[in-house]
Nucleic acid binder design. Sequence first.
DNA 1: AAATTGATTTACGTTAACGTTAGGGTTAGG
DNA 2: CCTAACCCTAACGTTAACGTAAATCAATTT
Lengths: 134, 134
Amino acid sequence: MTNQNNELTYSIGELAKEFDITPRSIRFYEEQDLLSPERTGQTRIYCNKDRVRLKLILRGKRLGFSLAEIKNLFELYDSNANSMLQLEAMLQMTEQKRAILRQQLDDIQMLMNELDEVEKRCRDELADLQKRGS
Amino acid sequence: MTNQNNELTYSIGELAKEFDITPRSIRFYEEQDLLSPERTGQTRIYCNKDRVRLKLILRGKRLGFSLAEIKNLFELYDSNANSMLQLEAMLQMTEQKRAILRQQLDDIQMLMNELDEVEKRCRDELADLQKRGS
DNA sequence: AAATTGATTTACGTTAACGTTAGGGTTAGG
DNA sequence: CCTAACCCTAACGTTAACGTAAATCAATTT
């Protein structure tokens, strides 16, 4: 649907289907102050900004961030922080997150290598079986 | 300590300290069949293989795997699977995990980009403040 | 008009991964 | 002999992130 500004809007069910989650989850994110959609009467109306935010929430989750951490990142991102103290705190946080991401990259690399080995051993054995079987 | 084969062994406390977790966690992993150290009386004795396994558990956790999934991976890795069916199931699993890891790599990349932007905006504002302040 | 579909709130239930407390045993040092 | 620093089991408590059920309302469809 479109609202009065000719922007696309979504119902809770549409978003749930698109991202393959339940409406319950979306309402829960709102309860945790991660979303704040408009309303028409009681019904929630999500604009594109909300949709993007939801996408970010799910991406954060896949990376193992808790909802509280995600909320933190949002506040960090949204805040029109002006004081030097706030700005420096922000830089510190981004650096922390960056460190975690680097660690995860390492972890993924090592796991991929291990998967390679498992797969190789596996293929070898399969080839062996084929040979004997024929 | 070293055991009768002159291999290094570790107490639960040593491992806990090394990996910055609690002994409770290590015992819990054992309860979930992710570890199975030797015993001297009641006391657990961990060899190097156990230590490596613990390291793998923690790496898996950082990547958002559940303990059950990690156990699955271990069984997959340990099993001297010989039947073609088992081997093919194994290949399927590694491919699944690989897909998840690829997804995570994408996620990390996008998050890193976003962090770059946040940081840049932040530095700009800081520079601005410095200018006016001087 | 009745039924289906999708929305709402409220509130209790569930699972994973430990934390915490209670109670007790063993060895090294003072 | 006593205390400190380890280790153990058993069992209940906790938190996050929803699941699920009940009861209700509004808009379509048949």
